[in-house]
Design a binder for these strands. Sequence first.
DNA 1: CGTAATGTTGACAAGGGTCAAGCTTAGTGG
DNA 2: CCACTAAGCTTGACCCTTGTCAACATTACG
Lengths: 216, 216
Amino acid sequence: MLAQQAHDLPLARRPLAEARPQAKPVGLGPHQVLFHDARSEIYAQGETATALYQVEFGAVRVYRLLADGRRQITAFHVAGEVFGFEAEGQHRFFAEAVSNCAIRAYRLPIEPRAAAEILPVALESLVRAQQHLVVIGRQSADERVATFLLDMMARQGGRAQVELAMSRTDIGDYLGLTIETVSRILSRFKQRGIIRLPNARTVEILREPALRALCD
Amino acid sequence: MLAQQAHDLPLARRPLAEARPQAKPVGLGPHQVLFHDARSEIYAQGETATALYQVEFGAVRVYRLLADGRRQITAFHVAGEVFGFEAEGQHRFFAEAVSNCAIRAYRLPIEPRAAAEILPVALESLVRAQQHLVVIGRQSADERVATFLLDMMARQGGRAQVELAMSRTDIGDYLGLTIETVSRILSRFKQRGIIRLPNARTVEILREPALRALCD
DNA sequence: CGTAATGTTGACAAGGGTCAAGCTTAGTGG
DNA sequence: CCACTAAGCTTGACCCTTGTCAACATTACG
């Protein structure tokens, strides 16, 4: 569909001199914080996996492309979250910065004694992916968008004012919908007084219970 | 939609006297092999997680139910595969025997030194779940069924004759489709000479390339 | 052999996709 | 500072894929 343009961009990676940690590092030994411009690639499908990553600030999308350009975003990651597990030697997905962001990289291989520490973190990703399977596999478009908004709200501390780091296209590719459908549903929610849209990237949730009622 | 009937069944769990191992045990220390009748519950959503499980023979489905009965099967597991990771203390999904099967149970908590051993196994589940997200989120019904058949074939050693342990309903709930759609697509594949259906639970793959061409 | 579970097929409806036009916003350069 | 452009977003009209409902066929089971 699109989204290939990002790969044409230069991979702007410059080490961040001295980042103040906004997320607690996992106990994985030495690491390095890298700054990524929006849209820059963190790793690509097929690449040898060299690290695990933790978002310091900003947001990241992990996705796969089909031959004809269809894209499925399997996960968004925000501050504190760890990603890059999807490898056994080789990355099976692409990871890109959604917005400007800082990423802590823990070089692989991790020592066996650190495995116990990251296992629960990996399982979190697994549970998230499986939850998302339910959303995509069995929920209607309305339900998917409602679930998405509540998830974003929860990940921003539960405040009613939710800042979306990602475009409608990203949201669609995450929810298995088209950008038109996402847009229409947000408009409908707005019209029903469930949300306000101060601007395209900000959603204010006015009637959270109405969203919850939609989620299943 | 349905599928709740399974919970009404007695949980027939009887220890299997002396199972010959058909799957290599993972190095997780002491374990016990249990026999499960078809449809019996292995664990339920909300239960405290007490073990990891490895399929000895037979097949298992892991799923979640929505309030209105819609069901999403997040994974099928066959001989050798390990499941039950989706917990941090509590199971987030249901697991049931699809057919009669034997399950090796490794009591939790696992020792830290075994973590390194199961991490790659957990990551396999993660990659599988993420792949499935792509299938469900971005592929058409034809493509999903084709992908499913090829996956089943691969998991049975690549032989053209594929035995389906699960019903059409299970397949539908796994692929995010209705049973009617699954049935129709199999009929269409048959009519096009891509597969043969000696009986409802057996698929003979006649033109594998045609299926591959469909997968993306 | 009879009954229930499972699978198939058809007719029809609807949710969401496609295509297209127009609007808004942000970025760029004169 | 404003005009121009491009990207992103919204909205409408239409259509197609898939879901729904229903009847019937087949298989498994007691």
